[in-house]
Design a protein around this nucleic acid. Structure first.
Lengths: 349, 349
DNA sequence: AAGTAATTTGCATTCGAATGCAAAATTGCA
DNA sequence: TGCAATTTTGCATTCGAATGCAAATTACTT
């Protein structure tokens, strides 16, 4: 009985479930003004020790948490950053997302996630982004020029992740695709490979095209003309399909196959081994790009260029935060060299 | 010159970059009241066709998008759902996240992502969640009883993904771990395997323990006593380590190894093949759980129980949305049977 | 055309926290 | 103790959209 009563006593006003506790509730119960409560939750604000203790005690009792929505409305800072990621099923991106999320969260920023199913469809997503008043955007997806212009007009900081717009003044962190491609190609050629296949990305992928083009250009520079190029889709399946297409186009399999990313390379290796009865790397060398987790698995032990994801995500977050503080900073592109991973899926010199 | 001037003319007021366009700006320029503008953006509101056209025209001109923050403040609906995911590096979760994001977004809900590095640390995350006034939470992470109580008190709808609290009245979608384990074990035993290894999850994982316990229980029921159990961490690495630990503990390798998830199974297969020189499944059968993408790769072709991720994510979203509309719905648990994937990593009957 | 019913519009207020400014309380100093 | 300097507190307003209610407009009826 007594217990019940005291329990009810606690429930008096703002404790009833469902009703959200506001700064006014805390203020009333603590016998102070709402502004005082507000100040107690602002670091460095002018509040006496006594006041802070009194307010914090009541706040804890009532389970008060400042309403970030109301705060954003007046401060014009949502502490939200939108992260646009185009295909999470590519094994490379979960890692990127996890790291971005971690680093932003360490800085007191929350992540509003937009997972696109394709590279396009960004328009509805952008409308959402404007509505939610995010403080900035990190995009691992392609945007049109019109969309870029919107960012400009709204002064929203934007940092691209691995989308390099060479002709636009935008912020970006990228892995140096061309340099990586050159490194791989040179090593393959030096090891004596004479004929090459390249399995590229889909039409609309910038990263894919850069890697493919750079590889082809390097091969051409080095005087290799036996090069067969086919399109892919960054997926495991397209690795096998690519191998088949190359074989058809060329008549037989080449000495080495350069894949636009690790997933494709793994698919190619499996197809070569289990579909065509070839040994990798004895019969055919295979190299990839990215350095995803499965690339290091014993079954594949892929020769690849690993992207320094840690430094890239750190760079992206840092650049974005800087521009959230100071929107007038000039656009900047940070280009990170890939890290060569000397696997055993290719004969390499 | 003329061009310049007209361009400037357009910039007159609210078009200057940085300044955000509000409903008042639209109202003023269209010569109507702010409430009219608001109503034009609310489907089904009482607005004449003429008004709607006039307002929409100006809104488009100015690039107006309603401020979701301000809207949430008054409607008490943020249209935000928090998704808590514990380890994105487990290949299973990116798929889950992508689907949840997709399905929520189809229903006009935005995802606030919280990627935990470990199963714990949820406390700061929860504080953030309260502050952002999310309408609901989907958690693929463990919560303490205190944390559950907080949800109760605040009347926030919560749906667990693959965390089954058998003794708590919470909402959850789960894959039936026990049933899956039984299916796998029965098939292995029927195929004549006599000795078993089990590589489990980490201590604090409910899913891991359920799968391990169910497997062990089933083996025991079927009269098999040669069972060696070791702990793991859901990772590729722990697959290899687990194999080694089992060999040490038991003296030699068993006929079959049951892994708590596919990543572990793949690690085990690679270790058996490339570390111990064994053939899979001829020498040792290996089975997994989850049905992640790499499980189907030719190198592994894993025998596993695939979780019906599509139906599970759909179920989670549906349950959550229902409870956002009607918080008084009683707690519900939906248990989905796994789908047996008849791979070639195990001799199975 | 006049009067009523139905629809559309605007006014004024609300949501919850932050903040400039002035009032109040505290401190320091003589 | 008294008065100025400083700190702390409260008042009132603001952010931007939504909404109940009343006023204004339109449509409909006879």
């Amino acid at each position: 009985m007594v217990k019940n009563k005291s329990a009810q006593g606690q429930l008096d006003n703002s404790f009833q479930s469902g009703r959200v506790v506001t700064s006014y509730d805390v203020a009333r119960k603590a016998g102070v003004s709402q502004s005082a409560v507000s100040r107690c939750f602002k670091p460095g604000a002018s509040v006496s020790k006594k006041m802070r203790e009194k307010v914090m005690k009541v706040a804890t009792e009532l389970g008060y948490e400042p309403n970030a929505i109301a705060r954003s409305l007046i401060t014009k800072r949502s502490n939200l950053v939108a992260v646009i990621i185009s295909n999470l099923t590519n094994l490379y991106y979960p890692e990127v997302l996890a790291q971005l999320s971690q680093r932003l969260s360490d800085r007191g920023i929350r992540v509003l996630l937009f997972a696109l199913d394709t590279e396009s469809h960004a328009d509805q997503v952008l409308a959402q982004i404007w509505q939610y008043q995010v403080d900035g955007v990190i995009a691992a997806a392609k945007l049109t020029n019109d969309q870029l212009a919107e960012f400009e007009k709204r002064q929203k900081p934007l940092v691209f992740y691995n989308r390099f717009y060479s002709n636009q003044a935008v912020n970006a962190v990228c892995c140096d695709q061309a340099e990586g491609a050159y490194h791989l190609v040179k090593g393959l050629v030096a090891a004596g490979h004479q004929s090459f296949g390249i399995i590229g990305g889909p039409d609309d992928s910038v990263v894919g095209r850069e890697r493919t083009d750079a590889s082809a250009a390097c091969l051409s520079t080095m005087g290799t003309s036996d090069v067969t190029i086919v399109d892919g889709s960054f997926s495991y399946e397209c690795g096998g399909a690519g191998v088949e297409m190359i074989r058809e186009k060329r008549g037989s399999l080449p000495d080495a196959i350069i894949c636009v990313n690790d997933m494709t390379a793994i698919g190619a290796i499996d197809a070569l081994r289990y579909g065509h009865g070839k040994n990798v790397p004895e019969d055919v060398s295979v190299v990839g790009f990215d350095g995803v987790g499965p690339a290091t698995w014993a079954s594949f032990d892929l020769t690849t260029m690993r992207q320094p994801v840690g430094r890239m995500t750190e760079g992206a977050v840092e650049m974005l935060m800087e521009r959230m503080e100071n929107p007038d900073l000039p656009p900047e592109k940070r280009l990170f060299a890939g890290v060569f991973v000397d696997g055993t899926s290719a004969v390499f010199a």
